[in-house]
């Protein structure tokens, strides 16, 4: 059974009297350990798909099973628990808390977890997640004291700290230059190599090439779903 299973997902937004169909029947299966890039121009529905995959939003119809759990019908509190336990978010604009140390930023999801994690254990796990993205020694730096690439790595560490089933990266290199983008994509690839399932949303082809599989959306439908392979990714980023 696939880790992520979307079946015929439809999402309709009503803007006053007008109904906008953002997703018009999307079916997608992602296996554990996969590295998928979801591509599409703006307005293609990729942000909507990302929100649904991230349990931030619910589909209008269709089903969504994440790690065997039917999450399409859950209430907001239950979805918050799922987000905490199963999903790690990486955002385009990092979304780190200002004037808060890297370590405390990474610790954030552990505060809201359902498991009883004491302060000491939280710090230990947070420090381990920072080490995993190559930021040992920067635990007590504030975001303003870190470079863009380092800030995004802190955000990745924050996404990893609860050991989620999938990592959802929404345009993770959108605010970064080419060299720094490579740095971040290398971290993601290393994580994938270590077994983490990653779903990457991007509109840049060279970033998508870092992934193993490419899914292209247009007008709320999947129009392309191909295995691109890793070797291409290395070449594309160089």
């Amino acid at each position: 059974m696939a880790l992520v299973e979307l079946a015929d997902v439809v999402k309709v937004y009503s803007m006053g009297e007008v109904e906008v169909c953002a997703l018009a029947g999307v079916s997608l299966a992602v296996d554990a350990g996969d590295f998928v890039a979801i591509m599409g121009a703006s307005g293609s529905g990729k942000s909507t798909l990302m929100n649904i995959l991230g349990c931030l939003d619910r589909p209008t119809s269709g089903s969504y099973r994440l790690d065997g759990i039917d999450v399409a019908s859950l209430d907001p509190n239950a979805r918050a628990e799922i987000r905490n336990a199963k999903i790690g978010f990486v955002f385009q604009s990092f979304n780190l808390l200002a004037r808060t140390s890297a370590l405390e930023n990474v610790e954030l999801p552990l505060i809201y977890g359902t498991g009883a994690v004491g302060g000491g254990e939280r710090l230990r796990r947070s420090a381990a997640a920072l080490a995993q993205v190559g930021l040992e020694g920067r635990e007590h730096h504030f975001p303003s004291q870190l470079s863009g690439g380092q800030q995004q790595r802190v955000a990745i560490a924050r996404a990893l700290v609860t050991d989620p089933a999938i990592l959802l990266a929404d345009e993770p290199t959108g605010n970064l230059d080419t060299a720094t983008s490579r740095e971040v994509m290398q971290v993601l690839r290393a994580l994938n190599a270590a077994g983490k399932t990653i779903i990457l949303i991007t509109h840049e082809a060279d970033i998508a090439d870092w992934a193993r599989r490419r899914v292209v959306l247009r007008d709320g439908r999947i129009v392309e779903d191909v295995i691109t392979g890793r070797e291409v990714g290395v070449g594309g980023a160089a």
Partner: peptide, 16 residues
């Protein structure tokens, strides 16, 4: 608002 968004995204419930 953004901070609240991040907290909600990483699993904070409304009551938190």
């Amino acid at each position: 608002t953004r901070e609240i968004g991040v907290r909600l995204a990483v699993g904070a419930k409304a009551r938190h």
